[in-house]
Design a binder for these strands. Structure first.
Length: 418
RNA sequence: CGGGCCGUAGUGUAACGGUAGCACGUGUCCUUUGGGAGGAUUUAGUCCCGGUUCAAAUCCGGGCGGCCCGACCA
């Protein structure tokens, strides 16, 4: 994409009321726009990143048998009244609104009840289970205090998967596979080394839930980490009894701050039972369906990546989620021959199947480099009189600053092998 | 929800109760062109409602909005 055509602009300063690093950098670079507290729109660059993250999540969910759906965001109170969760005292952060005829609807904050009802229409035999169903959708939660940019919003994009099992062992088996899939997702989006499975409160459903905490000073959770075992315990359940149960030794734990980038629960029959989701086993006997739910906040994940990897100059995207593979910078400064060379390289890289942001704007080098660092695309490619003379283009890695000089074919080769 | 801070051009930041100024950005022109260059010129603002006062960005009340700490976060 030609940067001269990109409708968003970068800015030197962040809005003064944005304190979180993720929001400051993402707004300055033009990835997102804040609509109101805790509510952000995704602009072209931001949407590209979000979609890349979503694709990775999709692939891993499909790999463990997930089937993607898209449920309505407007929710029917009736099904929630059956489980008792429509009550404001039970779920206190639910946006609810009224229909013209006086009836009420909810705005989706989670979808267990909705999906369970759908399942009752389609599954009733042991042959119909297990099933894993997920969606990627905007969620709404009326947080008393939205904060930290994309990390805690009132509207956010979430992948929520629900698993329906015939037995505890089937649920436990899937649970472990989901944990593996989650770790793979975090690895693929570039935060693997600093993200750990963490035992946390299971809420009203079970003793523990599994969180995935990315170590980061900006995080709102405190955890106790055993790096060797790659396991952590959230402060909310941290005590001697729990440590013993998990086989963790206090002396081997370090206190850390973390951002919760994923959270998974075993729900048992909490929702399936009241809503009548059962199956007939081989003997024709009705059995309850067991459930688990598996969430990842995609926007929060995007913000977490920025928090973790960004530096003083701007964002540093891993290749897997970067909006473009390369940022081509034309420093022709009026030299038509250089300009032609840059155009040609842009064409060749694009035709080679690589997404390139081409800074073809008529600006000085400093401004272009500044924007380039801020936007954080993994590879910077410069075309100038210097490179024209040398016969090779200058390539600089955003992350390491490592510089190399490559011909077009060498570049295509490098990009396709990275 | 408790506590604190705050609201001035698109962005950032000044102004004792007394002329709303500066920088960046935007538009135009000239010079410049490998780390945000220089000059000329242009554009645009006191969140809303009410009160005090000769006079309010400034003081008071209310509203709306934002940020931070805490609580909360199936």
């Amino acid at each position: 994409m030609r940067q001269s055509q990109l409708f968003t602009k970068t800015r030197r300063e962040a809005p003064k009321d944005e304190v979180a690093k993720n929001a400051q950098l993402l707004i300055r670079a033009g990835y997102i726009h804040k609509e109101m507290a805790g509510v952000y729109s995704y602009l072209p660059l931001g949407l590209r990143v979000l979609n890349k993250i979503a694709d990775i999540v999709r692939e891993e969910m499909n790999m463990i048998g997930g089937q993607e759906v898209l449920m309505s965001a407007l929710q029917d109170p009736n099904v929630w009244k059956i489980t008792g969760r429509w009550d404001d005292k039970v779920v206190d952060n639910w946006f609810k609104t009224k229909l013209k005829d006086g009836g009420e609807v909810g705005l989706g904050h989670s979808q267990e009840e909705d999906l369970v009802r759908i399942m009752t229409m389609h599954a009733s035999s042991h042959r119909d289970f297990p099933k894993a169903i997920y969606q990627i959708q905007n969620k709404f939660r009326n947080e008393l205090r939205a904060k930290s940019g994309l990390l805690r919003g009132r509207e956010f994009i979430m992948k929520d998967l629900y698993f329906f099992a015939r037995s505890e062992s089937e649920l436990a088996d899937f649970h472990e596979r989901a944990i593996e899939a989650y770790l793979k997702i975090f690895e693929r989006v570039g935060i693997g080394p600093r993200t750990f499975r963490t035992f946390a409160s299971g809420g009203s459903f079970s003793k523990f839930s599994d969180e995935f905490q990315m170590l980061c000073e900006a995080g709102e959770d405190t955890l106790y980490l055993n790096r060797e075992k790659k396991l952590a315990v959230n402060k909310e359940v941290y005590n001697d009894e729990v440590l013993e149960e998990l086989g963790l030794d206090k002396s081997e734990l370090s206190e850390e701050k973390g951002i919760e980038v994923g959270n998974i629960f075993k729900l048992g029959t909490r929702f399936s039972e009241p809503l009548g989701l059962r199956f007939k086993d081989e003997q024709g006997k009705e059995q309850p369906v067991l459930m688990g739910c598996y969430g990842i906040g995609l926007g929060r994940l995007m913000g977490a990546i920025v928090e973790a990897l960004g530096d003083e100059k701007g964002i540093v995207w891993p290749e897997t989620v970067a909006p473009f593979r390369a940022h081509l910078i034309d420093l022709s400064g009026g030299n038509a021959e250089v300009k032609k060379e840059a155009d040609e390289l842009y064409r060749e890289l694009t035709e080679g199947g690589f997404e390139v942001l081409y800074d073809d704007r008529d600006l000085r080098a400093g401004e272009k480099f500044g924007d380039c660092d801020l936007i954080g695309i993994p590879l910077r490619v410069v075309v100038s009189e210097k490179t024209l003379t040398a016969g090779k283009f200058e390539c600089v890695e955003r992350k390491s600053g490592k510089t190399s000089h490559l011909s077009t074919s060498e570049m295509l080769n490098t990009l396709s092998h990275a």
